[in-house]
């Protein structure tokens, strides 16, 4: 499978050094290594979700209980979670670190991913959620730490978009 295990490890290590101790996830192809790393780590609490919006509630609870968390989901899971982001995370000023695999961009081969790809950034912007693309290993560690810092300071959700160039190793 050409999902980059090396970059997944880089992302995971950055999450840990940013203080993340709980990860809730609904995996898709690009996220399998990341979920596996959380599963294998005795220091990490991994919650496997049935639907992404549960993760908003779990992260809110964990935050109020003093534990930093992150969510791993596809952009379609983010789109499915919009009400919970608005009605819980934003309404109650909950810092929420969302790592969103950004399917449906240039290079996408799956037709079913393409509509969601086109509306992800407009929806993030409409919600006023600060976001940044992670498209190169060189920006991973600092961006994750910076996202956590901002989220902890403004008590609001932030999004990091895990891009194809980072997550997928095309066989050339």
């Amino acid at each position: 499978m050409p999902v980059s295990s090396q970059n997944s490890q880089l992302i995971y290590d950055a999450l840990k050094s940013a203080g993340v101790r709980l990860v809730s996830a609904l995996p898709e192809t690009w996220l399998v290594h990341l979920v596996g790393l959380a599963d294998d780590d005795p220091e990490m609490i991994l919650v496997r979700l049935a639907k992404e919006e549960e993760g908003i509630g779990i992260s809110a609870g964990a935050h109020l209980a003093g534990v930093s968390s992150a969510m791993l989901m596809q952009n379609h899971g983010f789109l499915a979670s919009v009400n919970s982001i608005v009605s819980l995370a934003q309404l109650y000023r909950i810092p929420l670190l969302m790592l969103i695999s950004f399917r449906g961009e240039f290079g996408e081969t799956d037709p079913w991913q393409t509509e969601g790809g086109g509306v992800t950034i407009p929806v993030l912007d409409a919600l006023g959620i600060p976001w940044k693309r992670l498209d190169s290993p060189s920006v991973v560690k600092k961006s994750i730490q910076d996202a956590m810092t901002l989220s902890s300071a403004n008590l609001r959700p932030v999004a990091l978009l895990l891009c194809r160039d980072l997550m997928w190793e095309d066989a050339n």
């Binding site: 908003i56 509630g57 609870g61 003093g66 309404l91």
Partner: peptide
């Protein structure tokens, strides 16, 4: 007061964290 359905998810997050 909102986010109907997520009280149990919040409880789960708290219970796991503490």
């Amino acid at each position: 007061e909102h986010a109907m359905g997520l009280a149990s998810s919040m409880g789960l997050g708290i219970a796991l964290a503490r």
